[in-house]
Simulated assay, not measured.
Amino acid sequence: MPTSTNAVEFTVHDAHDPQKYEPFALGQVQWVRRPGEGGRPALSAGFWHVTTEEAPEPFDLLIEADETIHIIEGHLHIEVEGGDSFDLTPGSAASFNRGAQTRWTVVEDTTEFFVYS
Rank of each mutant, 00 (worst) to 15 (best):
M1R: 13
M1W: 14
M1K: 10
P2Q: 13
T3M: 15
S4P: 06
T5I: 14
A7R: 12
A7Y: 09
V8T: 15
E9W: 15
T11N: 09
V12I: 14
V12P: 02
V12Y: 15
H13A: 09
D14Y: 10
D14T: 13
A15H: 10
H16M: 09
H16Y: 15
D17W: 07
P18M: 06
K20E: 11
Y21E: 14
E22V: 08
E22G: 03
E22Q: 07
P23T: 07
F24W: 09
A25K: 12
A25W: 14
L26C: 05
L26N: 02
G27W: 12
G27A: 09
G27I: 11
G27D: 13
V29W: 01
V29E: 04
V29I: 11
V29K: 02
Q30F: 01
W31D: 00
V32E: 06
V32K: 01
R34L: 02
G36M: 00
E37G: 00
G38W: 02
G39D: 00
R40L: 05
P41M: 01
P41L: 00
A42E: 15
A42W: 13
A42P: 03
G46R: 01
V50S: 06
E54F: 11
E54P: 05
A55C: 03
A55Y: 06
P56T: 12
P56S: 06
E57A: 06
P58F: 03
F59P: 08
D60S: 02
L61N: 08
L61F: 14
L61I: 09
L61Q: 14
I63Q: 04
I63M: 09
E64F: 02
A65K: 07
A65T: 09
D66L: 07
D66A: 08
E67Q: 03
T68P: 02
T68K: 06
I71Q: 09
E73G: 09
E73D: 13
G74N: 12
G74D: 12
H75K: 15
H75C: 15
L76A: 02
H77Q: 14
E79M: 05
E79K: 08
V80R: 04
V80Y: 07
G82Y: 11
S85Q: 12
S85P: 03
F86P: 08
F86R: 09
D87G: 01
L88D: 04
T89M: 08
T89F: 07
G91Q: 15
S92G: 03
A93K: 11
A94K: 10
A94S: 10
S95Y: 07
F96V: 06
R98D: 11
R98F: 06
G99I: 05
G99T: 06
A100S: 13
A100P: 06
Q101A: 13
T102L: 05
W104V: 10
T105S: 08
T105V: 03
V106K: 01
E108V: 06
E108I: 04
D109W: 12
D109H: 10
D109A: 03
T111K: 03
E112N: 15
E112H: 15
E112T: 14
F113K: 02
F114W: 04
V115R: 04
Y116K: 04
